[in-house]
Design a protein around this nucleic acid. Structure first.
Lengths: 198, 198
DNA sequence: GGGTTGCGGAACGGTGCCGTACCGGATGGG
DNA sequence: CCCATCCGGTACGGCACCGTTCCGCAACCC
């Protein structure tokens, strides 16, 4: 499902400018993060993208499809320091996630949690684009932790990922004050790894 | 800060009907859960409460103050089975929280996570009314777990509460499918308690 | 019982977004 | 070349909600 629903079949006349697709999607994501889904407006997207309203409606019939496609362009690189121990890699992953709570994807999440009540597909896209890649990275590091003898081999890695992500993400979402202690992530990793230790 | 800002000083004329305060607040909370904060409308609140708009504006100048006061009326009883072991009490607490993800307070949370970007006070009220009581209950049960020798005495109970609540709440918020396994909560409690064991 | 306030309901002008439809110009395919 | 389509911009009628105001009546204090 490409961003533009137009078929690649050659059509007469001037072709659509592909760079406008990305500009529109980018503007939609920015606005989604800034004002939320309910307040997101086709007019505002057009203005932010420097585009006429007709250009939007020519490609997307309504806000929902636009945002769904825009979310498909949302991706974050998930890198992890090579050569470090599994424990250090887990700490690094979670600290990156914590630090990114103010990033584009991070600011979009609470908006989508609300919008998902009416439109579950929006959140499903976000999970596929952002949450699942993070979890996959986490699982692979946890598998390395099993190899290191740090985690019991019978542990469900998906469940272990929940134990690690949950506390960090929940605190970020709830904006609990005071903000998490500097060693918060490390303590989470230590406590969870102790619980999963052979 | 009472719901109605009117002073208790006697005033001439017909006094305000206190039952309308609760009807309005209840309607506001229902609408908040159903349509979200951005789409919540003074007109809709008035209609749902069976009240004229003037009655609303006589008490609250704007939507924000109304919702803040309405949230102050939000409270859930947090009971825990007496006589059970600390472990069983923890499982019961978290399962209750999980079951209540569809309750009024549970449906309001994602709406407030989005609204809190513009209006942090809304989420602060929710934390004070809903989150903090739950955490307090959790801390007291964890203290009992320390007395039972189930948890090390030097463990930060607040941090332990994060480890327990985080995974459960995060899964509920993200609506991860498939829905959590039936023994999900028990496994979380078991793993965390193992990590905090003496 | 008179003056004052509360109440539901209806109406007001103003504003912002909807989705559509044009315009004049640009761009590329047949 | 010619014409279909794309582009930015503007305008349109319609609709929903805003916050206020007025009405007619009810309820209460002094």
């Amino acid at each position: 499902m490409s961003v533009t629903t137009a078929e690649t079949v050659a059509r007469p006349g001037r072709p659509r400018d592909p760079s406008l697709d990305v500009a529109i999607c980018r503007a939609a994501l920015d606005l989604l993060a800034d004002v939320g889904y309910a307040a997101l407006t086709m007019e505002a997207v057009a203005a932010a993208a420097g585009v006429g309203k007709a250009t939007l409606y020519r490609r997307w019939p309504a806000k929902e499809q636009l945002v769904v496609d825009a979310l498909a362009t949302l991706a974050e690189p998930v890198e992890v320091p090579a050569g470090a121990s599994a424990r250090e890699q887990l700490v690094a992953l979670l600290e990156t996630q914590q630090r990114r709570s103010g990033s584009l994807a991070g600011r979009i999440l609470p908006r989508l949690l609300s919008a998902a009540v009416e439109n579950p597909e929006l959140l499903a896209r976000y999970r596929a684009q952002v949450v699942e890649p993070r979890r996959a990275r986490l699982r692979s590091v946890l598998a390395a932790a099993v190899d290191e003898g740090l985690v019991r081999p019978d542990v469900d890695l998906d469940h272990a990922a929940d134990l690690l992500i949950g506390p960090v993400a929940y605190r970020n979402l709830l904006r609990t004050d005071p903000p998490a202690a500097p060693d918060f992530v490390r303590r989470v990793v230590d406590d969870v790894l102790t619980g999963l230790h052979p």
